[in-house]
Design a protein around this nucleic acid. Sequence first.
DNA 1: AATAATTTTTAGATTAATCTAAAAATTATT
DNA 2: AATAATTTTTAGATTAATCTAAAAATTATT
Lengths: 218, 218
Amino acid sequence: MITLTEENYIKAIYHLGKYGVNNVSTNAIAKEMETKASSVTDMVKKLSEKSYVDYKKYQGVTLTGKGKEVAVNIVRKHRLWEVFLVEKLNFSWDEVHEVAEQLEHIKSKKLISQLDAFLEFPTHDPHGDPIPDKTGKIKKIDKILLSEAKIGDDCICVGVQDSSSDFLKYLDKNNIALGTELKVCHREPFDNSVTIRIKTKELIISNMIANNLFVKVS
Amino acid sequence: MITLTEENYIKAIYHLGKYGVNNVSTNAIAKEMETKASSVTDMVKKLSEKSYVDYKKYQGVTLTGKGKEVAVNIVRKHRLWEVFLVEKLNFSWDEVHEVAEQLEHIKSKKLISQLDAFLEFPTHDPHGDPIPDKTGKIKKIDKILLSEAKIGDDCICVGVQDSSSDFLKYLDKNNIALGTELKVCHREPFDNSVTIRIKTKELIISNMIANNLFVKVS
DNA sequence: AATAATTTTTAGATTAATCTAAAAATTATT
DNA sequence: AATAATTTTTAGATTAATCTAAAAATTATT
């Protein structure tokens, strides 16, 4: 049996290891989990004994195949529930995370396969993140950050890097949603702010915003 | 903050105290929770300190107003989720309990109010049990056990006492569902088995079955 | 390469929930 | 009413997850 806490550690290690980082450090996990490094060391030993992670003292951890399976399944559940909350229960995209954090731990294969079907097998969650299929396969889309787009590019908004409530509300306020088409008009060399055009309206976006918005160049 | 275990104890005390029993005994709780009496004593002290129950040593416990509120809210969530599972995710009525046991602990007011609306404010769960409203009000219907119905009564099936998978599957097999109309034809004095007629078909039902099926005399 | 700074682990303690075995209180029976 | 049977509580231990403070190992800096 896997405990709720173990699942959360595995998820944290998965997210931290996502971008090429092979050995996730104790401190990184502690920060992500909002706990102390000593607690992480204890838990990591336990996860290692149960062979969810490979761990050598002072060397950090990597998920094993078994660990990755658990992680991807949690991510799948989290994202399917997010779709449910937005599509069926009228949650806005900045409200779903907290609830999905709870729902992702419900254990029932039938529940998830039926939910998947009920939602008509969605491929992406409300933030544009891909939903792993039942076998754990995740299909990547070739998205780039708006801050990396070239002047003159016609883009379509496909995701967010940060999904904090403040950021998502900013996007709502400025009528930027997944699927929104925009053109990159100008990048100011001094602060890397970006002028974009949505339909006929121009909007100036800070570098920080541009760094958290994924687009696909069309 | 209330823990998951505390919620489960409160729920157990609620269900045990439902039928007039005022002081729920330590042993009764232990049996319901599949734990030991000594564990119950400890927990009951804690619940008493947090004023979810009134407790005097050796005297059993009663839920306080605060405790009842928690209990009814869990029951509401449990039953709403059961409706969701059956109506939207095509679960059969004997499959929902285990999953609902998990879902009932998800904490989000918005989730429940939106789910309620999505399901179009159901008043009863798939087993015929009433769903408390947001204020905790439960409306009773004047149901009786089939074993208490008189010969010649025209009844409509409105609920089950026991909701074990075995019992529910028996009902499915014999085409008895909520809303099924039946006539009480005969009661055998020797074993209290009951002959009923559904549409044109007669069926003999043991006393044990009749003791677990709620009907409304029409 | 030695020392300083940082990171990680160890040792020992704490809280929540549980257990077993024995003691205490209550209830049932003679 | 005294004794037996049952129920409940107490005492002390255990497991999971956490913490603080100190020790050990690693990494960075002079």
